[in-house]
Design a protein around this nucleic acid. Structure first.
Lengths: 112, 112
DNA sequence: TCGTCTCGCAACCTTTGGTTGCGCATGACT
DNA sequence: AGTCATGCGCAACCAAAGGTTGCGAGACGA
């Protein structure tokens, strides 16, 4: 089946800072670039760039309100990303198990 | 619980080219920089660099043989990586479900 | 109105994925 | 043996991405 996943979505989730941002957005029920940067070891501008990436792939949506911009996780899209993660993991996992079974079968045939 | 994962391992697996290399190594039962680059849209040198990264984090091991260097997947380490992937996915998934349940509960309490 | 808070834009640095070019060693062929 | 070709490593270079600082512009509270 090879890797039929959406590389954009994966790479959006592939960055450690973005993963932590998603964690914070999920646990805090949304946040702004400023509030997120206070909980992260990077500047507001770095967070803003990451929010741009996440927004571009649809993982978050934004609600301007006065001088603030509230970002929230798009649950459906994050669910898609989670599905892709587990899909790749499952693919490798399956192959690992297949290889393990093959290896065991070979061993048995050589012993017998 | 936040994101207690090994960022090195994740970022090793986070690169699309490296993921495809792992796929190829798994399905082909190992390979060299040259054989892998023939099946990928990048040069041998790029593949060699990626193999260096994968080797550094222990996802592959190498067997020099004459002028060739055969790389194979370290199954135990890849299994660790898969476990971490599914861990993060599961964490988000759990929060998505929790949020959904909370939202439903709030709606019910407001309606009642 | 005046200060302040949040934000966006721009310039810059560093790392990383990728390329080309080269030289060296090992293996294959006659 | 001698030669050709193959596989690899090293180095220089380029572009994109994550990160920083500095600044100007709107919105808000006192």
């Amino acid at each position: 089946m090879s890797v039929t996943i959406d590389d954009e979505l994966w790479s959006a989730v592939g960055d450690p800072t973005r993963r932590r941002m998603l964690d914070l957005l999920l646990s805090g029920g949304g946040g702004t670039a400023t509030t997120l940067s206070e909980q992260l070891p990077v500047t507001r501008q770095a967070v803003a760039k990451h929010l741009g990436v996440l927004h571009r792939v649809g993982l978050v949506h934004v609600t301007p309100s006065g001088r603030e911009r509230l970002y929230e996780v798009d649950e459906a899209q994050l669910a898609r990303a989670v599905a892709q993660l587990s899909s790749v993991g499952a693919s490798w996992d399956a192959r690992l198990h297949r290889i393990k079974r093959i290896a065991e079968a070979i061993q048995r045939s050589q012993e017998g």
